[in-house]
Write a protein that binds this DNA or RNA. Structure first.
Length: 904
RNA sequence: GGGCGCGUAGCUCAGUUGGUUAGAGCGCUACGUUGACAUCGUAGAGGUCAGAGGUUCGAGUCCUCUCGCGCCCACCA
């Protein structure tokens, strides 16, 4: 016999060693040739690449555990399972980290220069970039580490170039002057998705603009006699860049003003007044200042009316030299104060209102985004959106929970062009070169760095200084990680992938764009299912984040309770598409479910192993004829659990899958079956009974450990290896063992055990209610037990005696003297002779209350049965059930009444 | 301004197409070291399923409205 297991489960004893072993044996390695030449069915999950700078948090813990559960489960089902890991270079995020390091040395990126800076980032990434991947190992993720990818590695960069050039050649990538979201701190453009609106308390300033020509009749006048109109704005500092004023064409108040001019205060510029339907006459004063260079709507309006744009800010959002002297160089918010002060001095501020509106913030650094006129690269999205939309509508790509489909569709239907250039250094350099030969000026987008201009032959080429949005590499991830644009074996074997597990926050950033890229570059969606997880939040409902300091470190949880405890807890907390709440302040309570369950598994199996002894265990099929009712019952329950867990995993109902396995293991196997067979295991004489119990036990443990393995890989594999399996497995580890087939239910055995458990429960309840000391034995009398209970008693009376501390079971015994009384659902009455312990008055009261309850139920049931609508329309089995219920209730009523009168 | 989601036991949540007595874990109470497990066992208390109407033989589940939370989208300066 193997070494006995320690009584306390210590995950640290087994986890690290097991993981190395799994990895060394190549269990996580998927082989393309099996798919291509042996027709193995693949199952592929490509990891949402975490930022290369990040450290594991509970969001990853949740996400990657789900991915690993799916991967391990499919692997056990015999699929060629690939869980492909990797990291994202995360343009802004990573650049920020290194810039902060430089700042600590008192330097900026410009001080070191582009080349040295990028080198420094690579250094940093090389040193720290594998942290998060190591951490994924610690939580047990069965990734194929031989295929680890990084978005900025050469192969993937080649994919990025290929994609860019193809789109460019198709005319889907263009460069233009537009208002984009600009982060004045990161000094780069942001996509619409990267600018996050936040409700902000601001002010609405009403400013008087003197009218030069076209003053509306009755317009108010300034002390100097000039007429004026009032313009409302939330951003007075931008008025320095006003180049027009607009009103609604249907606004009668300002009809005279259209075509006239006003004078821009502080600057003394003459501004034309135009009419445009964009202006809402209801809002503010109905007169809008137009600042084309600093507001996207104004920009569009200015285009329509051919109004020039005047940029009045520097990239870091200070006022530029285009504004009057006193304001030059001022930060935008300081400029706002000064502008307002100057206007007040001149009596040009009519009033200031409090005003709540949403202001876009940089998703990386939370700085208020500045709309800025600049030349950027864009992808035309409309043509790409079509197939992606059709995929969702046809169900080719399924979203779980389904409601996300609508959100996805809505975004695609209203898609806008994607700003893909970023003014950063860390990332994929835009593969565009400009010919500096003035007579040529050719623009070249190329897969390979060109040495000379293909048009004029000049060697004076200059590459675009910008890099591409990080998501421009991410959207190719399922393709590029498998080798695209080359036609690799991996690509042929594993594309399209199967399940994408990710957070809904990046549905637009990433998921939708991947689907578009999949169709555009390979004519096929990159995956079949998208499972959107909830967000991990603290008890106040706040998202866990580093800055709030409310996070839970998954590694801390692994250290304290083990990876399996973490995984079980997380999986069982995953409601269907709802957020997950965890208490960072009380890890013991939060992870008690998983920790306690791990310990239970450990001890139950340990007990089983101690009892199984050294003899060879028979195969279940060799003991069929000797199986007793308890054996048949647990086999039937295993069949039920197997089909439940499988079904729930198939529909992404992780909570239910975890709970089914948990309930079977703890509530049925440990609580009942192990207790039921204890005597049989130790009996020397009854060879067949013992042999059947041992065979069943091993078979059931084997089955349940398999069911639990995807969720709790370590403890299940460690224990499974110790099982004395009759046909010592084909495989040496659960990782590559087969997922069990459901097996056949045994209704008869289930009915018997239900009755038996109910009887034992009833006796226990009585003992507890009447404070019968644990040590004292009682006798029970049963009148009219049903057939199931009768059979069960014949087979398992011993169990009743032991588990309920009963010294004798008397069937058909009448009422004798005073007795406690319980009504069993099976219809049997139970009397426990406990003379001298029972409070008769209390018992009478109890019986009366019970009678009333039964009377109510009976009335309800009878009236339902009396209703023709019910008998006519309800399904036959429901009606039959109601009839049985009524009969049973009447029976109970009769007995209780007799009992009550018997009490005197 | 549109759209979506949530509200079930003290807490965190399950409850798949409407169908027996609405479940789990934690917490709480009582008893218990009966030879796997005190990270345990047995028993128990605790719910007008947010509220109001409706559909139905039957509603936690479907519909309408109200209240309270949360999220997403949107160019009202």
């Amino acid at each position: 016999m193997a070494e006995p297991l320690p009584a306390q489960y210590d995950p640290a004893d087994i986890e690290a060693a097991l993981y190395s072993e799994w990895e060394e044996r190549g269990y996580f390695h998927a082989r393309a040739d099996r798919v291509l030449t042996e027709a193995a069915a693949p199952y592929v999950i490509v990891i949402p690449p975490p930022n290369v700078t990040s450290v594991l948090h509970m969001g990853h813990g949740l996400n990657n555990t789900i991915q690993d559960v799916l991967t391990r489960w499919r692997r056990m089902q015999g699929r060629e399972a690939l869980y492909l890991p990797g990291t994202d270079h995360a343009g802004i995020a990573t650049q920020n980290v290194v810039e902060r390091q430089l700042a600590a040395e008192g330097k900026t990126r410009d001080d070191v220069g582009r080349e040295a800076f990028v080198e420094r980032v690579w250094d940093f990434v090389d040193r720290t970039g594998s942290t998060i991947l190591e951490q994924l190992r610690a939580i047990g993720c069965s990734c194929d580490w031989t295929r680890t990818r990084f978005t900025l590695e050469p192969d993937l960069s080649r994919a990025v170039r290929e994609a860019f050039v193809r789109l460019y050649e198709k005319g889907l990538i263009y460069r233009g002057n537009y208002i984009i979201n600009w982060c004045p701190r990161c000094l780069t453009a942001l996509s619409d998705e990267e600018a996050e609106p936040e409700e902000t308390q601001g002010r609405l300033y009403h400013i008087r603009y003197p009218v030069l020509a076209g003053a509306p009749p009755g317009a108010p006048t300034l002390p100097d006699g000039r007429a004026y109109v009032v313009v409302a704005t939330t951003r007075p500092e931008t008025m320095l860049g006003d180049t027009a004023v607009a009103v609604n064409p249907d606004d009668d108040r300002y009809r005279a003003l259209v075509g006239g001019t006003v004078l821009l205060p502080l600057v003394d510029r003459e501004l034309p007044v135009v009419a445009d339907a964009y202006v809402d006459p209801e809002f503010g004063t109905g007169v809008v200042k137009i600042t084309p260079a600093h507001d996207p709507n104004d920009f569009e309006l200015a285009r329509r009316h051919d109004i020039p744009a005047l940029d009045v800010m520097t990239p870091d959002a200070r006022m530029s030299d285009a504004v009057p002297g006193p304001f030059r160089g001022l930060d935008r918010f300081e400029a706002r104060r000064r502008v307002v002060a100057a206007l007040e001095e001149q009596g040009l501020v009519e009033r200031v209102e409090e005003h709540t509106h949403s202001v876009p913030h940089c998703y990386r650094c939370d700085t208020i985004v500045e709309p800025r006129l600049s030349e950027q690269w864009f992808v035309r999205m409309k043509p790409l959106a079509g197939p992606a939309l059709a995929a969702a509508r046809s169900g080719r790509v399924r979203f779980t929970p389904e409601r996300w489909t609508k959100v996805y569709e809505h975004w695609l239907e209203n898609i806008r062009d994607w700003t893909i250039s970023r003014q950063l250094w860390w990332g994929h350099r835009i593969p565009v070169w400009y010919c500096r030969n003035e007579e040529c000026g050719h623009v070249i987008a190329a897969r390979e760095d060109p040495v000379a201009c293909p048009r004029c032959g000049s060697a004076q080429l200059e590459q675009d200084p910008d890099v591409l949005d990080t998501w421009f590499s991410s959207w190719l991830w399922p393709l590029s990680t498998l080798g695209w644009p080359d036609e690799t074996d991996d690509l042929r074997a594993f594309y399209p992938t199967h399940t994408l597990v990710t957070a809904p926050e990046i549905l637009f950033f990433w998921v939708a764009r991947m689907i578009m890229a999949g169709y555009e570059f390979r004519g096929e969606a990159p995956f079949t299912d998208v499972y959107l997880t909830g967000t991990v939040r603290d008890m106040q409902g706040r998202k866990m984040s580093k800055s709030l300091g409310n996070g839970i470190d998954p590694l801390e949880v692994v250290r304290r309770y083990g990876a399996d405890a973490l995984r079980y807890t997380v999986i069982s907390s995953v409601g269907f598409g709802t957020d997950v709440y965890m208490d960072p302040g009380n890890l013991d309570a939060t992870f008690s479910v998983g920790r306690n369950f791990s310990n239970k598994i450990w001890n139950a199996v340990r007990f089983a192993l101690m009892n199984l002894g050294d003899d060879v265990v028979a195969a279940i099929d060799d003991v069929r004829s000797d199986l007793e009712v308890a054996d048949r019952w647990i086999l039937s329950r295993l069949a039920a659990a197997t089909s439940d867990v499988t079904r729930h995993l198939e529909s992404f109902r992780f909570h239910e899958a975890a709970e089914s396995a948990y309930h079977f293991f703890w509530g049925e196997l440990a609580d009942w079956y192990l207790e039921l067979i204890k005597p049989r295991m130790q009996e020397e004489g009854a060879v067949a009974s013992r042999r059947a119990a041992r065979a069943t036990l091993v078979h059931v443990l084997d089955g349940v450990l398999r069911l639990l393995h995807p969720i709790m890989p370590y403890i299940t594999d460690a224990l499974w290896r110790r099982l004395p399996l009759p046909d010592r497995a084909q495989s040496a580890s659960l990782v590559v063992a087969r997922w069990p087939e459901p097996g056949v239910r045994d209704e008869d055995a289930e009915a018997q055990l239900d009755a038996l458990m109910e009887l034992i429960g009833a006796v226990r309840t009585l003992r507890s209610e009447y404070n019968v000391p644990a040590a004292s034995q009682v006798r029970i009398h049963l009148t009219g037990p049903g057939p199931s209970l009768r059979d069960a008693l014949t087979a398992e009376e011993r169990a009743v005696r032991r588990l309920a501390r009963v010294e004798a079971v008397m069937v058909n015994g009448g009422a004798e003297g005073m007795g406690a009384h319980a009504v069993l659902r099976s219809g049997a009455d139970l009397f426990v002779p406990l003379a001298g312990i029972i409070d008769v008055a209390q018992e009478r009261q109890r019986l009366a209350k019970e009678l009333e309850r039964i009377g109510n139920q009976l009335r309800a049931t009878e009236s339902r049965l009396a209703s023709e609508q019910f008998t006519a329309r309800a399904p036959a089995e429901i009606v039959a059930r109601e009839r049985e219920k009524a009969a049973s209730l009447r029976d109970q009523q009769r007995r209780l009444s007799a009992k009550l009168s018997g009490l005197g």
